[in-house]
Design a protein around this nucleic acid. Structure first.
Length: 212
DNA sequence: CGCCAGGGCCATA
DNA sequence: TATGGCCATGGC
């Protein structure tokens, strides 16, 4: 089983996932923070509370209590309000301009994001890939579970699994983008606490036959 | 009613 | 490095 085959299988089954759901780079950044350990539908409620005002300037000028009130549906609101301010301030170093961010080296941006309060590795990579179109592979709980089921030599920790994906795939933003999305979509659809992965397009190569 | 979702921080050993 | 407690809403 090769990663490229898994990718093709998922793409054939689900088509182009068109991720990340979000209009602007900043909305994607906000979504990446708000979705931490939280169902996406709750993130949508939170984002909807901003109406057409989901801009970095607006978020930075909001009082903590007001920001909390808007993002409440996403849970962990006291933490996430602080996190949003922090990551927004980071974006401000580049004038809230995505093209300016994209001119910086990927490694530098990733290090800056990882030193930002509330931005761990998954959130950092999600922002870099989906908000700015930079080639870094996103590892999440679905990806870790997938590697535990299929006969892949992906290793254990986040960075190890990330390196495995990046070294076994073409360095393509399009592939990184679609692949992570497809893993999540397939995980939601078939491979969570369902024995025998009924209907899962990856069931043939699945060793444990039990997902999640 | 309990479980958990597209994590991350912090304390502890 | 590797656990464990904590954060909190909403859908099922």
């Amino acid at each position: 089983m090769v990663l490229a085959q898994i990718y093709d299988t998922l793409f054939s089954r689900y088509g182009n996932p068109h991720w990340w759901p979000g209009e602007t780079p900043y909305e994607i950044i906000v979504g990446a923070v708000l979705t931490q350990n939280c169902a996406w539908r709750n993130v949508e409620k939170a984002i909807a509370n901003f109406g057409n005002n989901l801009t970095p300037e607006f978020v930075l000028c909001l009082d903590h209590a007001v920001l909390v009130d808007k993002i409440r549906p996403a849970g962990f609101f006291n933490q996430k309000a602080v996190y949003l301010k922090a990551v927004t301030a980071w974006f401000g170093k580049y004038g809230f301009d995505a093209d300016t961010v994209k001119r910086e080296p990927l490694g530098k941006l990733r290090a800056e994001l990882l030193s930002t309060k509330g931005v761990g590795r998954e959130t950092a990579d999600s922002i870099l890939l989906y908000a700015f179109g930079l080639p870094t592979f996103v590892i999440d709980a679905y990806t870790v579970r997938l590697c535990g089921r299929l006969p892949l030599e992906a290793g254990k920790g986040y960075d190890e699994i990330k390196a495995y994906f990046e070294s076994n795939l073409p360095k393509s933003v399009e592939v990184y983008n679609n692949f992570h999305a497809l893993i999540v979509i397939n995980g939601k659809e078939h491979c969570r606490k369902k024995p025998l992965c009924g209907g899962c397009p990856l069931a043939d190569g699945c060793e444990k036959r039990i997902c999640g």
